[in-house]
Protein backbone atom coordinates (compact mmCIF):
# COMPACT_ATOMS: atom_id res chain seq x y z
CA UNK A 1 0.00 0.00 0.00
CA UNK A 2 1.44 3.30 -1.13
CA UNK A 3 1.36 6.48 0.88
CA UNK A 4 -1.97 8.26 0.85
CA UNK A 5 -2.45 11.30 -1.39
CA UNK A 6 -5.13 12.85 0.77
CA UNK A 7 -5.53 12.24 4.48
CA UNK A 8 -8.73 13.41 6.10
CA UNK A 9 -8.46 13.09 9.89
CA UNK A 10 -11.27 13.67 12.38
CA UNK A 11 -12.88 16.43 10.35
CA UNK A 12 -15.98 18.01 11.82
CA UNK A 13 -17.97 20.75 10.15
CA UNK A 14 -20.87 22.18 12.08
CA UNK A 15 -23.53 24.63 10.93
CA UNK A 16 -25.10 25.88 14.14
CA UNK A 17 -26.29 22.72 15.82
CA UNK A 18 -26.16 20.59 12.71
CA UNK A 19 -23.16 18.33 12.27
CA UNK A 20 -22.86 18.21 8.49
CA UNK A 21 -19.64 16.24 8.74
CA UNK A 22 -18.93 14.52 12.03
CA UNK A 23 -15.49 13.21 13.02
CA UNK A 24 -14.76 11.84 9.60
CA UNK A 25 -11.48 10.16 8.70
CA UNK A 26 -10.45 8.46 5.49
CA UNK A 27 -7.69 8.62 2.96
CA UNK A 28 -7.44 8.64 -0.80
CA UNK A 29 -4.47 7.11 -2.56
CA UNK A 30 -2.74 8.41 -5.68
CA UNK A 31 -3.75 6.83 -8.99
CA UNK A 32 -6.94 5.58 -7.47
CA UNK A 33 -10.52 6.66 -7.84
CA UNK A 34 -12.06 7.16 -4.43
CA UNK A 35 -15.82 7.58 -4.36
CA UNK A 36 -17.75 9.22 -1.56
CA UNK A 37 -21.35 8.09 -1.56
CA UNK A 38 -24.29 8.43 0.75
CA UNK A 39 -27.95 9.44 0.81
CA UNK A 40 -28.99 13.05 0.25
CA UNK A 41 -27.85 15.32 3.05
CA UNK A 42 -25.16 12.93 4.19
CA UNK A 43 -22.52 15.70 4.08
CA UNK A 44 -20.75 14.75 0.88
CA UNK A 45 -20.69 18.22 -0.66
CA UNK A 46 -19.78 19.77 2.68
CA UNK A 47 -16.81 17.43 2.83
CA UNK A 48 -15.82 18.55 -0.66
CA UNK A 49 -16.09 22.17 0.31
CA UNK A 50 -13.81 21.49 3.29
CA UNK A 51 -11.21 19.78 1.13
CA UNK A 52 -11.25 22.52 -1.51
CA UNK A 53 -11.17 25.29 1.08
CA UNK A 54 -14.61 26.80 0.57
CA UNK A 55 -15.42 25.88 4.18
CA UNK A 56 -13.03 25.77 7.12
CA UNK A 57 -13.76 22.73 9.30
CA UNK A 58 -14.01 23.45 13.03
CA UNK A 59 -12.11 20.32 13.99
CA UNK A 60 -9.69 18.04 12.18
CA UNK A 61 -6.86 17.99 9.75
CA UNK A 62 -6.74 17.55 5.98
CA UNK A 63 -3.30 16.73 4.62
CA UNK A 64 -2.40 16.59 0.98
CA UNK A 65 0.84 14.78 0.26
CA UNK A 66 1.94 16.88 -2.67
CA UNK A 67 5.05 15.66 -4.55
CA UNK A 68 6.85 18.73 -3.18
CA UNK A 69 5.86 18.03 0.42
CA UNK A 70 2.77 17.67 2.61
CA UNK A 71 0.35 20.60 2.84
CA UNK A 72 -2.37 21.23 5.40
CA UNK A 73 -5.38 22.15 3.31
CA UNK A 74 -7.54 23.47 6.15
CA UNK A 75 -5.03 26.27 6.63
CA UNK A 76 -4.98 27.42 3.00
CA UNK A 77 -7.34 29.81 1.20
CA UNK A 78 -9.58 28.26 -1.43
CA UNK A 79 -7.64 29.72 -4.37
CA UNK A 80 -4.23 28.75 -2.95
CA UNK A 81 -5.45 25.16 -2.59
CA UNK A 82 -5.75 24.97 -6.37
CA UNK A 83 -2.65 27.03 -6.96
CA UNK A 84 -0.22 25.44 -4.52
CA UNK A 85 -1.66 22.09 -3.56
CA UNK A 86 -2.97 21.17 -6.98
CA UNK A 87 -6.51 20.26 -5.96
CA UNK A 88 -9.03 20.99 -8.70
CA UNK A 89 -12.77 20.61 -8.47
CA UNK A 90 -16.00 20.66 -10.41
CA UNK A 91 -19.39 21.69 -9.06
CA UNK A 92 -22.67 19.91 -8.55
CA UNK A 93 -24.49 22.69 -10.41
CA UNK A 94 -22.12 23.39 -13.27
CA UNK A 95 -20.19 26.64 -12.91
CA UNK A 96 -18.75 27.52 -16.26
CA UNK A 97 -17.93 31.02 -17.48
CA UNK A 98 -21.07 30.95 -19.57
CA UNK A 99 -20.52 33.95 -21.82
CA UNK A 100 -16.88 33.14 -22.55
CA UNK A 101 -15.90 30.72 -25.26
CA UNK A 102 -15.06 27.09 -24.54
CA UNK A 103 -11.41 27.73 -25.31
CA UNK A 104 -11.33 30.80 -23.07
CA UNK A 105 -12.74 28.74 -20.21
CA UNK A 106 -9.80 26.38 -20.54
CA UNK A 107 -7.28 29.20 -20.77
CA UNK A 108 -8.62 31.01 -17.71
CA UNK A 109 -7.96 27.75 -15.87
CA UNK A 110 -4.26 28.17 -16.64
CA UNK A 111 -4.26 31.63 -15.06
CA UNK A 112 -1.52 30.96 -12.53
CA UNK A 113 0.94 29.68 -15.08
CA UNK A 114 0.18 32.48 -17.56
CA UNK A 115 0.38 35.15 -14.87
CA UNK A 116 3.91 34.08 -14.08
CA UNK A 117 4.88 33.98 -17.77
CA UNK A 118 3.50 37.45 -18.44
CA UNK A 119 5.03 38.95 -15.26
CA UNK A 120 1.55 39.71 -13.91
CA UNK A 121 0.46 40.80 -17.38
CA UNK A 122 2.86 43.73 -17.44
CA UNK A 123 5.35 42.12 -19.82
CA UNK A 124 2.46 40.80 -21.87
CA UNK A 125 1.07 44.32 -22.16
CA UNK A 126 4.29 45.46 -23.75
CA UNK A 127 4.21 42.50 -26.11
CA UNK A 128 7.28 40.65 -24.87
CA UNK A 129 7.73 37.31 -26.54
CA UNK A 130 7.89 35.04 -23.51
CA UNK A 131 4.16 35.48 -23.03
CA UNK A 132 3.28 34.59 -26.62
CA UNK A 133 5.12 31.31 -26.12
CA UNK A 134 3.34 30.60 -22.84
CA UNK A 135 0.02 31.38 -24.46
CA UNK A 136 0.73 29.01 -27.33
CA UNK A 137 1.51 26.30 -24.76
CA UNK A 138 -1.74 27.08 -22.96
CA UNK A 139 -3.69 26.76 -26.20
CA UNK A 140 -1.91 23.46 -26.88
CA UNK A 141 -2.87 22.13 -23.47
CA UNK A 142 -6.43 23.32 -24.00
CA UNK A 143 -6.51 21.60 -27.36
CA UNK A 144 -5.29 18.39 -25.76
CA UNK A 145 -8.14 18.43 -23.28
CA UNK A 146 -10.68 19.47 -25.89
CA UNK A 147 -9.69 16.40 -27.89
CA UNK A 148 -9.94 14.24 -24.78
CA UNK A 149 -13.47 15.33 -23.93
CA UNK A 150 -14.49 15.56 -27.57
CA UNK A 151 -15.31 19.26 -27.67
CA UNK A 152 -12.74 20.46 -30.21
CA UNK A 153 -15.45 21.34 -32.71
CA UNK A 154 -17.11 23.62 -30.16
CA UNK A 155 -13.92 25.45 -29.11
CA UNK A 156 -15.06 28.90 -30.22
CA UNK A 157 -18.67 28.59 -29.08
CA UNK A 158 -20.05 30.24 -25.98
CA UNK A 159 -19.71 27.78 -23.12
CA UNK A 160 -23.22 28.55 -21.89
CA UNK A 161 -24.75 27.52 -25.22
CA UNK A 162 -23.46 23.94 -25.06
CA UNK A 163 -25.76 21.03 -24.23
CA UNK A 164 -25.74 19.87 -20.63
CA UNK A 165 -23.58 16.79 -21.10
CA UNK A 166 -20.97 18.81 -23.00
CA UNK A 167 -20.91 21.38 -20.21
CA UNK A 168 -20.18 18.64 -17.67
CA UNK A 169 -17.26 17.39 -19.72
CA UNK A 170 -16.00 20.92 -20.30
CA UNK A 171 -15.96 21.54 -16.58
CA UNK A 172 -13.83 18.43 -16.07
CA UNK A 173 -11.48 19.56 -18.85
CA UNK A 174 -11.26 22.98 -17.25
CA UNK A 175 -10.37 21.50 -13.87
CA UNK A 176 -7.71 19.31 -15.51
CA UNK A 177 -6.18 22.37 -17.22
CA UNK A 178 -5.09 23.63 -13.81
CA UNK A 179 -2.70 20.68 -13.68
CA UNK A 180 -3.98 19.05 -10.48
CA UNK A 181 -2.64 16.13 -8.46
CA UNK A 182 -6.11 15.50 -7.03
CA UNK A 183 -9.29 16.01 -9.00
CA UNK A 184 -12.51 16.33 -7.02
CA UNK A 185 -15.72 15.73 -8.96
CA UNK A 186 -19.04 16.65 -7.42
CA UNK A 187 -21.67 14.41 -9.03
CA UNK A 188 -20.19 14.37 -12.51
CA UNK A 189 -22.83 11.96 -13.83
CA UNK A 190 -25.85 13.93 -12.60
CA UNK A 191 -28.25 14.61 -15.45
CA UNK A 192 -26.39 12.45 -17.97
CA UNK A 193 -28.06 9.77 -20.06
CA UNK A 194 -26.67 6.20 -19.90
CA UNK A 195 -24.55 6.65 -23.00
CA UNK A 196 -23.02 9.89 -21.73
CA UNK A 197 -22.50 8.29 -18.37
CA UNK A 198 -20.56 5.42 -19.97
CA UNK A 199 -18.45 7.97 -21.84
CA UNK A 200 -17.79 9.71 -18.54
CA UNK A 201 -16.54 6.44 -17.02
CA UNK A 202 -14.11 6.02 -19.88
CA UNK A 203 -12.95 9.63 -19.54
CA UNK A 204 -12.30 9.30 -15.81
CA UNK A 205 -10.43 6.00 -16.17
CA UNK A 206 -8.43 7.59 -18.96
CA UNK A 207 -7.54 10.62 -16.83
CA UNK A 208 -6.36 8.36 -14.05
CA UNK A 209 -4.31 6.13 -16.35
CA UNK A 210 -2.70 8.94 -18.28
CA UNK A 211 -2.10 11.56 -15.66
CA UNK A 212 -1.51 9.32 -12.70
CA UNK A 213 -3.50 11.60 -10.42
CA UNK A 214 -5.93 10.76 -7.68
CA UNK A 215 -9.65 11.24 -8.21
CA UNK A 216 -12.19 11.93 -5.53
CA UNK A 217 -15.76 11.48 -6.61
CA UNK A 218 -19.15 12.22 -5.15
CA UNK A 219 -21.75 10.27 -7.01
CA UNK A 220 -25.30 9.02 -6.83
CA UNK A 221 -25.16 6.99 -9.99
CA UNK A 222 -24.20 3.52 -8.77
CA UNK A 223 -23.30 2.31 -12.26
CA UNK A 224 -20.53 4.90 -12.29
CA UNK A 225 -19.43 4.30 -8.73
CA UNK A 226 -19.32 0.53 -8.81
CA UNK A 227 -17.71 0.34 -12.19
CA UNK A 228 -14.80 2.70 -11.83
CA UNK A 229 -13.99 3.31 -8.20
CA UNK A 230 -11.18 1.51 -6.43
CA UNK A 231 -12.25 2.56 -3.00
CA UNK A 232 -15.57 3.71 -1.62
CA UNK A 233 -16.38 5.76 1.49
CA UNK A 234 -20.02 5.74 2.57
CA UNK A 235 -21.41 8.63 4.60
CA UNK A 236 -24.67 8.92 6.43
CA UNK A 237 -25.63 11.87 8.62
CA UNK A 238 -22.07 13.19 8.41
CA UNK A 239 -20.49 9.99 9.71
CA UNK A 240 -18.60 7.31 7.88
CA UNK A 241 -20.61 4.11 8.02
CA UNK A 242 -18.48 1.96 5.74
CA UNK A 243 -15.32 2.01 3.71
CA UNK A 244 -13.77 -0.48 1.32
CA UNK A 245 -13.68 -2.00 -2.13
CA UNK A 246 -16.85 -1.83 -4.30
CA UNK A 247 -17.70 -5.52 -3.86
CA UNK A 248 -17.43 -5.29 -0.10
CA UNK A 249 -19.54 -2.13 0.01
CA UNK A 250 -22.28 -3.70 -2.09
CA UNK A 251 -22.67 -6.44 0.50
CA UNK A 252 -22.28 -4.25 3.57
CA UNK A 253 -25.48 -4.40 5.68
CA UNK A 254 -24.96 -0.88 7.10
CA UNK A 255 -24.86 0.56 3.59
CA UNK A 256 -27.95 -1.30 2.50
CA UNK A 257 -29.72 -0.08 5.60
CA UNK A 258 -28.74 3.55 4.93
CA UNK A 259 -29.87 3.41 1.32
CA UNK A 260 -32.96 1.23 1.45
CA UNK A 261 -34.03 1.90 5.00
CA UNK A 262 -35.20 -0.87 7.31
CA UNK A 263 -38.00 -1.58 9.67
CA UNK A 264 -37.69 1.11 12.33
CA UNK A 265 -36.00 -0.30 15.41
CA UNK A 266 -38.12 1.67 17.85
CA UNK A 267 -41.25 0.50 16.14
CA UNK A 268 -40.02 -3.06 16.06
CA UNK A 269 -38.91 -2.93 19.68
Amino acid sequence: MSEALLDVEHVTMRFGGLFAVNDLSFSARPQEITAVIGPNGAGKTTLFNCITGFYKPQVGRITLNHPSGPLLLERLDDYTITRKAGVARTFQNIRLFARMSVLENLIVAQHTRLMAASAFSLAGLLGLSRYAQAEAQAVERARHWLDKVGLTAFADEEAGSLPYGHQRRLEIARAMCTGPVLLCLDEPAAGLNPRESAELNRLLLDIRAENGIGLLLIEHDMSVVMEISDHIVVLDYGRKIAEGAPTAIKADPAVIRAYLGEPDEEEAG
Binding site: T52, F54, D78, Y79, T80, T82, R83, A88, R89, F91, R95, L96, F97, A98, R99, M100, E104, I107, V108, A109, H111, T112, L114, M115, S118, F120, S121, G124, L125, Y131, R174, A175, T178
Partner: peptide, 22 residues
Protein backbone atom coordinates in the same frame (compact mmCIF):
# COMPACT_ATOMS: atom_id res chain seq x y z
CA UNK B 1 -3.81 38.64 -21.14
CA UNK B 2 -4.36 36.63 -17.96
CA UNK B 3 -5.52 39.65 -15.95
CA UNK B 4 -8.13 40.62 -18.52
CA UNK B 5 -9.37 37.05 -18.80
CA UNK B 6 -9.57 36.82 -15.04
CA UNK B 7 -11.69 40.00 -15.01
CA UNK B 8 -14.13 38.49 -17.45
CA UNK B 9 -14.14 35.19 -15.58
CA UNK B 10 -14.88 37.05 -12.35
CA UNK B 11 -17.87 38.71 -14.01
CA UNK B 12 -19.17 35.29 -14.99
CA UNK B 13 -18.62 33.31 -11.79
CA UNK B 14 -16.59 34.25 -8.74
CA UNK B 15 -16.75 30.83 -7.09
CA UNK B 16 -15.49 29.09 -10.21
CA UNK B 17 -12.64 31.61 -10.29
CA UNK B 18 -11.64 30.62 -6.77
CA UNK B 19 -11.70 26.97 -7.71
CA UNK B 20 -9.23 27.67 -10.51
CA UNK B 21 -6.63 29.35 -8.34
CA UNK B 22 -7.61 32.93 -9.14
Amino acid sequence: LPVGRAWEALREDEIACRSLGI
